[in-house]
Design a protein around this nucleic acid. Sequence first.
DNA 1: GCGACAG
DNA 2: ATCTTGTCGC
Length: 273
Amino acid sequence: MADRAESEARVAEETLRAWERDQAQLKADVIDQDTQEWQSNPSFAGLERVGGVDLSYIKGDDTSACASLVVLSYPDLEVLYEDCCMVAVNAPYVAGFLAFREVPFLVEALQRLEQKEPGLRPQVLLVDGNGILHHRGFGIACHLGVLTGLPCVGVAKNLLQVDGLANDELHKEQIQDLQAGGDTFPLLSTSGKILGMALRSYAKSTKPVYVSVGHKMSLLSAVQLVHSCCRYRVPEPIRQADIRSREYIRKHLEAVSASPQPERMSEDADSEH
DNA sequence: GCGACAG
DNA sequence: ATCTTGTCGC
């Protein structure tokens, strides 16, 4: 049990090391720089479609999940595209290795979009989780960005306590100092590098979200984009992906319980022998 | 034994 | 992530 989780974590670790060797140059090139035209102006003119991805899980079922991808119009935040798909999760959840658990299904969802509605391809993706705010400087938002080539932003609902970051008294004070929606403070590593920003994304919510660079985008653009996508605390693309994947699971469970039980082979008679 | 722990 | 209704407050 614990052995299984440990061995899978080891495999993930080895995979990550190999991956890092191969992608080192790519990382250095495009992770935290603006690369798109729409990023160069304050109102993001030219940005029309923002994507959001998320996975929802079933309680007590460690293999079944629903992967969802939505695309919203910008700046109106209306849903243009939705894709929910039941998937069989392989990797366990290990903090630091989230990408190895969720990314494959998100890539598949984006490939389906590319095939069905290429015109609705998002110009940027908001990802549930962190970007460079990560033990290895390479969270799920970076991972997904490199695999898809899309600009990505990591939006975490909880602080990943890494590299000197901690949810301690100082951090809580800094949160209290976030008075208005849009207020931020930087998340600094021990060495002084900015790993991300805590953002008060919604005036009525005290709890911030943690924004970090995923791919092909600066932190400043990332924070401004996330803020401009918020109707509530969680930015609308991720929120819609979350809502829709949960609803999809609800209907899925409904359908399963209503459908006739899978037929058993006539094993009763066989077992007598 | 206690704390940490993106989703 | 998930278990979970109503409820208190702006």
